[in-house]
């Protein structure tokens, strides 16, 4: 319940945060909303020696329209994503998925950037932004760079972010009226997904990504061509893809208390079908 002791530093700008994290090195962690990190620290499963609090860095909480995209500041809270009229209009899948993260108290504190940077394959927003073809913007000592969501997730809780890089923005393409569905399967509403599927579909294009089917959130490939076909064949293509990617060990579902690996695969297929059906309705 009580974290191990650490030093605390509050950054007043992104530059300062990056400088601080560079100064303290590997044992330092960014602290945003804290809703991924603090639970681990309370059980002493994580014992960083320094926390760099970026929660007060100004101008990193926003949701704004930028051409074909919606740009979301990394410190934007889940509740603000969930309730954003702009997102409801242009990226309803993301707003909806954000409403499934944790519980209301968690959504009042947790941030989209924190969730993505934590790179937990069981989290809702990494897979959702992946399905949407999002781009993440990282800032480091040498300036900013863009990372496609598809290139971001490297392994369990590890990402393309360098140790001294900070996620500052998430850019999500507008959905332009695509049908969509977020299927979160769990036993209690507050829990992480046992398996989740984020999907959207419109004529000629589609995106599907899976929550908690391996060490990283998994993007279904070969779905764009499926998108133009009839729903039945689209579903077959995606489930075929799932079998293929399982065989290729891209998806590597692990057994845990709530699911065997087989069951996860089965659920992924059922939920993918349901998601595509709903997105096509």
């Amino acid at each position: 319940m009580i974290p191990a002791a650490f030093d605390y530093a509050r950054a007043s700008s992104a530059e300062e945060a990056i400088a601080l994290i560079g100064q303290y090195g590997d044992e330092a962690k960014f602290l945003a909303g804290g809703h991924s990190l603090l639970p681990l620290m309370k059980l002493r499963l994580a014992q960083p020696t320094v926390l760099v609090d970026i929660g007060r860095v100004p101008d990193l909480s926003y949701i704004r329209e930028e051409g074909d995209q919606i740009a979301i500041g990394a410190l934007t809270r889940h509740m603000d994503v969930e309730t954003s009229p702009l997102l409801h209009q242009h990226v309803p899948l993301l707003a909806h998925a954000a409403g499934h993260v944790g519980d209301p108290q968690v959504r009042h504190r947790g941030t989209i950037g924190g969730s993505i940077a934590h790179a937990d394959p069981a989290s809702d927003l990494p897979a959702t932004t992946l399905a949407l073809g999002a781009t993440y913007v990282a800032k480091g000592p040498n300036g900013t760079r863009e990372i496609a969501a598809a290139d971001f997730y490297h392994g369990f809780l590890t990402s393309a972010l360098e140790a001294d890089e900070m996620l500052v923005e998430i850019r999500v393409p507008k959905m332009n009226g695509a049908g969509w569905s977020f299927q979160k399967f769990n036993r209690r509403a507050q829990d992480w997904a046992i398996v989740g599927v984020a999907a959207w579909r419109r004529n000629g294009d589609a995106g599907v990504a899976l929550v908690n089917m391996g060490s990283v959130p998994i993007l279904a490939t070969d779905v764009a061509s499926a998108a133009s076909s009839r729903i039945g064949s689209a579903i077959r293509r995606v489930t075929n893809w799932l079998d293929t990617s399982l065989a290729a060990a891209q998806a590597d579902p692990q057994p845990d208390l709530n699911a065997s690996a087989d069951y996860r695969v089965h659920l992924a297929k059922v939920l993918t079908r349901r998601a595509l059906e709903a997105a096509s309705a």
């Binding site: 639970p39 059980l43 036993r187 209690r188 509403a189 507050q190 829990d191 208390l257």
Partner: peptide
Amino acid sequence: LTTSTLAEYLVPAASD
């Protein structure tokens, strides 16, 4: 014990 916290031991909430 692999269900030692309330995150793993599923006491249901109002929603469940």
